[in-house]
Design a binder for these strands. Structure first.
Length: 431
RNA sequence: GUGGGCGUAGCUCAGUUGGUUAGAGCGCCAGGUUGUGGCCCUGGAGGUCGUGGGUUCAAAUCCCAUCGCUCACCCCA
């Protein structure tokens, strides 16, 4: 048997998961403040939804999907991203009947079959948001400002906002033609992939990393020069709002994004503290997607942020959640759970149970350790108090309570208000 | 799918031109106190040297293959 997590997946254990939970907690708080409600969709969807939603010619659909048939022969796909599933849910549950726009956020795993590397996994986690039903440029800006605010609260700094507009079905054909015209003389010099892109999706030639293609496409016109009146107007407003928010961004002619559904605004936030996969989040507007999925013409905009990427920067910069202390009390039973002292153990366990029911964080030993070793364990857990009970205490109906920080110890009657005594000393925050 | 780097204890790593029972630090467990943690001292457990084959009197060490990890390309979160 293979005792190893599958390639491109990993386990999160206590010690690292606190940071993960912190990220999620902060995200929930920020998204809620911005008026987004959480949505959870299935981890798998009908393959067709993803294929049509994301686009047949994209890398995701053409080579990165986990697609399988279930026992009834349905073709299903582990979701490679959340936008298409969220749009599906929007249509399925008639969310267009609710006040528009519908603002949703999500947190959870996505799957893409790729060779793993720094910041890239086969099961990775995204947190993101979608605002469906409005074409307001304020939402485009919100999709950038909101995650940036999340990063700010987590303590991340040093990111670069890349922005572009790739037009709409009205103006893009003209741009495509211009692009083809500019590249036509060099068609033979393009890489094989780009030669097929030339016909299918010439915009993608712009973000080809091959040196030759990069050179050849250097002088071509930018999509922004071909925007129709509406798109140009929209983009100007997005920029104005970002500026009003005090967010600095960089216009990037080559930012076209690899998913077919984008229209108008596209953006990416990158971090210099990441490896080669430097993108913290990406997103854009998708005014044609709802219709493509069988709904009425409905605008939408969203972003998806990589949780592993954020975690990586947080780790890099030593950004940790506020430290939580150890247990309030560690119950030490002298003589351990040895048969002869079982009465002691039983009394100790009853006390432990009582402490926990009172809302205190309480621990004990489960390894039949010596008194000394139990105290050591209590110290290792940074327990605030050690409550010690042995045969002497049993006889006197008392317990020893030791302050592990001060090193002081006193004896209290068993029928005194032990819990009150402890609560008073750990501060009133616990009930 | 392609290329580079790396696989020795739970973790981080030593291991000479091939040479005897493969080591250290940390961690873990126990003892140094008949019932008291942290520091210190002592001891202990723990390793198919990734796996398979080859060369050799002898392989952790050299060769081949294979698997895994990792970084990069493509692309993206």
């Amino acid at each position: 048997m293979q005792v190893k997590a599958p390639r491109g997946t990993y386990d999160l254990l206590p010690g690292q998961i606190e940071r993960w939970q912190w990220l999620i907690a902060q995200a929930r708080e920020v998204f809620t403040q911005y008026g987004y409600g959480e949505i959870i969709t299935p981890i798998f969807e009908h393959a067709e939804l993803i294929e049509r939603g994301v686009g047949e010619t994209t890398d995701i659909v053409s080579k990165q999907m986990y697609t399988f048939s279930d026992k009834s022969g349905r073709r299903l796909t582990l979701r490679p991203e959340w936008t298409a599933p969220v749009v599906r849910a929007y249509l399925e549950h008639n969310l267009h009947a609710r006040p528009q726009p519908v603002k949703l956020y999500y947190i959870g795993p996505s799957f893409r079959y790729e060779r793993p590397q720094a910041g890239r996994y086969r099961q990775f986690h995204q947190l993101g948001a979608e605002a469906i039903g409005s074409a307001d440029p304020a939402l485009d800006a919100e999709m950038i400002a909101m995650p940036i605010e999340l990063y700010r609260r987590l303590g991340l700094s040093r990111f670069v906002i890349l922005l572009n507009s790739i037009g709409c079905p009205v103006c893009r054909p003209a741009y495509r033609q211009a692009l083809r015209a500019a590249l036509a003389p060099h068609l033979e010099e393009l890489c094989p992939v780009c030669r097929t892109r030339y016909d299918l999706n010439p915009l993608r030639i712009l973000d080809c990393k091959s040196e030759k293609c990069h050179e050849l496409s250097a002088g071509v016109p930018a999509s922004r020069e071909f925007l129709c009146r509406e798109c140009a107007d929209h983009f100007a407003q997005v920029q104005a709002i970002l500026e009003a928010f005090g967010l600095e961004y960089r216009l990037d002619d080559r930012l076209v994004r690899g998913l077919d559904y984008y229209t108008k605004t596209v953006f990416e936030v990158t971090s210099p503290d990441l490896g080669s996969q430097s993108s913290l989040l990406g997103g854009g507007r998708y005014d044609g997607l709802v219709e493509e999925c069988g709904g009425p013409p409905t605008p939408g905009v969203g972003f998806a942020a990589g949780m592993e990427r954020a975690m990586s920067v947080m780790e890099e910069q030593g950004l940790n959640p506020p430290v939580k202390g150890g247990p309030d009390v560690f119950v030490v039973t002298a003589g351990g759970s040895r048969a002869g002292e079982y009465g002691v153990r039983l009394r100790g366990l009853a006390l432990l149970n009582e402490l926990r029911r009172a809302g205190l964080t309480a621990e004990t030993d489960y390894m039949n350790r010596s008194l000394k070793a139990q105290l050591k364990a209590a110290g290792r857990l940074s327990s605030r108090f050690a409550l010690i009970i042995g045969s002497e205490e049993m006889a006197k109906n008392t317990v020893q309570i030791k302050d592990m920080q001060q090193g002081t110890q006193e004896e209290l009657p068993l029928d005194s208000d032990l819990i009150g005594w402890i609560q008073q000393r750990i501060g009133g925050s616990k009930q």
